[in-house]
Nucleic acid binder design. Structure first.
Lengths: 245, 245
DNA sequence: TAGCTACTGTACGCATTCGGACAGTCGGGC
DNA sequence: GCCCGACTGTCCGAATGCGTACAGTAGCTA
């Protein structure tokens, strides 16, 4: 069995993978591989953010925590991005929460090292800037989507967004959890998920969802999926997804 | 009548006002005062953004344009900010639209000049970074808000956000227009605006709205107003608003 | 001051989603 | 192989908001 080096693993994250070799090598000593349990909170609202994380696989939800104790997902981060943008923006805390949803392997870099690694003239700086633009576009579209589109459209969109960040066609997710992410009732998710399953677009059982017809899902989802996807493709190149179509 | 210099006017925009004098003076030759008609589009979805704008007064809506031809407001920019963040993020276009809503006086800086003015080590760069963080927080909270809160809460919040960016307690806005911004029916706005008026929080007639009880509005609005406001206060200092409480 | 237009008020039936409850079923652990 | 807990399916009444329509009114313009 081959020994997997930090260099190999860094190639899993699309931002790190896009760095020129010398710059990546300067980063390597500051990258530490970490594995977290599912639902692990990477940073909580108002708490200091001490490090950024470059996911190797799976995805992290960015959540806005509400007064009633609930949380609404406003964006999703996978191997195309980095968790901890507030540090880049010059602050060590944020009103949002970052929580692991799937996967759970990332490369961790301390706030201090990240600041140096994104100094003027570095490729990392311009990549993170572009990623920040993508993420903002995702959140913006989510804002519009939450106000205008049906649960069915939003669920189809959510599955596609997650699927883009997953190596496999199946991933663990329950209706209960989806309902929290979408900000709707669990029963509402069950009903529309049942419709999507009946239409042959997905399959699921006991907390495991399988995508069986991507094209069909795209047809059922609102335009928000395509708008954001095109923005990611445009700014990060078309290779940022974990899977091929 | 005193001659108002570009320097004086730059003090109206909180980002420019926060620059050290020498840095501001280097910017001045690149700042041009522009006046636009209401509803003027500063940048349309997918079209090249050729300049940034530092508003002196009033506010601009950032909109996500939807497939049905409608548009949903995802954020609001006033004298505390700058329109054209995509340029800062390294791209000259965006899926969003920026449109004047009130006021309409800004200082314009070309993309080229903006790039130089935000070079490494400048105060402008760090100010714009912090502002970008604020704006992202605003959009995130809007995403959550759109999914969870009632029209009444959202309208109260919207009025507060606009009020923060307006010198006067009254500003021109019709129910029709508010309904487009909030993504709801015009009739829905009329009903809840009527309730807020009956409660003595606002007054309006024929396209002119007046805030008569800010504290009452804050009590009626969802927590989203406070969450975002605190983030702006924290990162930009408490003086970013056009008015006192 | 008459008329026009833009804006506001209100009503009706309908669709979606909610909040809550409860029954059915899957599948891992013992 | 059985049990139990987690997950899914379904139902109810109620609330919210939608789409549409039309009437009333304020205020500008001629």
């Amino acid at each position: 069995m081959a020994v997997e080096t930090t260099l190999d693993r860094a190639r899993s994250n699309r931002i790190l993978a896009a760095l020129p070799r010398p710059e990546l090598e300067r980063c390597l000593p500051h990258l530490e591989r970490v594995v977290y349990p599912i639902r692990q909170v990477l940073h909580a609202p108002g708490e200091p953010i001490t490090a950024v994380h470059f996911p190797e696989s799976g995805w992290i939800s960015m959540l806005a925590v509400l007064a009633d104790g609930g949380a609404a997902e406003v964006g999703l981060i996978g191997r195309e991005g980095v968790v901890g943008l507030p540090l880049f923006f010059g602050t060590d805390r944020s009103p949002a929460e970052a929580m692991w949803q799937s996967g759970s392997v990332a490369l961790r870099m301390s706030a201090e090292a990240f600041r140096e690694a994104t100094a003027e003239g570095t490729t990392l700086r311009s990549l993170v800037l572009r990623y920040a633009m993508c993420f903002t576009a995702q959140v913006s579209q989510t804002a519009a989507c939450n106000g205008r589109h049906s649960i069915e459209q939003r669920l189809a969109r959510w599955v596609l967004v997650a699927h883009d960040r997953d190596e496999a066609d199946e991933f663990p997710i329950t209706h209960e959890f989806l309902s929290m992410m979408l900000g709707v009732r669990r029963a509402g998710v069950t009903v529309v998920a049942g419709r999507l399953q009946k239409a042959g677009l997905i399959r699921y059982r006991k907390g495991l969802m399988t995508v069986t017809d991507r094209a069909g899902l795209e047809a059922h989802a609102c335009e928000c999926y395509g708008v954001v996807r095109r923005e990611y493709d445009r700014l990060l190149g078309p290779g940022w997804r974990a899977r091929r179509d």
